[in-house]
C-alpha cells in the first residue's frame, strides 16, 4: 500500500508540475520617451516636385538624429520611407505630374528611436509641360 501511495504522490507532483508554468510580472511602466512630433507640417506642390516644410523645437535639436520622410498611400494605409534629412525642409523631385502625393514626417533621436509621425499632408503635383 505504501508503494501505491508513493506512486500517487509522484504522479500528483508531475501533474501539478505541468500546471506550474506561471506568467512573469508585468513591466512596471512605459519605458520609452519619444522625440517630439514635427509641427506645422506643410506640403506645397510644384512642377513635378513637392516641397515639405515643418517646425521642430529648437531645444530638441541636440538629441535629434534625423527626420524621416514617408510617402503615405492613403488607399492602402501604408507608408514608404523615401528619404531622411537633418533640416526642416525636404524637396521631393522627379515626380510624375498630374497626381496627388501624400507625405508624413517623423523625428528620430540619437538612440535611433522614432517618434510619432505627423498627420498626412497631401498636394497635387503639376506636370512640367
Amino acid at each position: 500500500m505504501s508503494r501505491f501511495i508513493m506512486v500517487c504522490l509522484v504522479s500528483s507532483f508531475i501533474i501539478l508540475g505541468a500546471c506550474s508554468k506561471d506568467h512573469q510580472d508585468l513591466p512596471t511602466s512605459f519605458i520609452y520617451d519619444p522625440p517630439p512630433t514635427p509641427t506645422n507640417f506643410e506640403v506645397v506642390g510644384g512642377n513635378e516636385s513637392a516641397t515639405l516644410t515643418w517646425s521642430y523645437p529648437a531645444n530638441e535639436f541636440g538629441s535629434l538624429d534625423e527626420f524621416r520622410i514617408y510617402y503615405h498611400y492613403e488607399i492602402y494605409n501604408m507608408i514608404e520611407l523615401i528619404g531622411t534629412t537633418a533640416d526642416t525642409t525636404f524637396i521631393d523631385s522627379l515626380l510624375v505630374g498630374n497626381l496627388y502625393y501624400c507625405y508624413q514626417v517623423s523625428a528620430v533621436d540619437t538612440t535611433g528611436f522614432e517618434g510619432w509621425r505627423t498627420t498626412t499632408g497631401c498636394t497635387f503635383v503639376r506636370s512640367a509641360e
Binding site: 506561471d22 506568467h23 508585468l26 513591466p27 512605459f30 520609452y32 519619444p34 517623423s106 535611433g112 528611436f113 522614432e114 517618434g115 510619432w116 509621425r117
Partner: peptide, 29 residues
C-alpha cells in the same frame, strides 16, 4: 516586440497588447 521596438507607434501597440495578454493570463491562471 515591445522591448525591441524602435518606433513609438509599435511600442505603444505592443505595450497595450502585452497588458491585455497579461490580464488574460491572470484570469486564466
Amino acid at each position: 516586440f515591445y522591448l525591441t521596438a524602435d518606433y513609438i507607434g509599435d511600442a505603444q501597440h505592443y505595450y497595450d497588447r502585452m497588458n491585455t495578454k497579461w490580464d488574460d493570463a491572470e484570469n486564466l491562471h
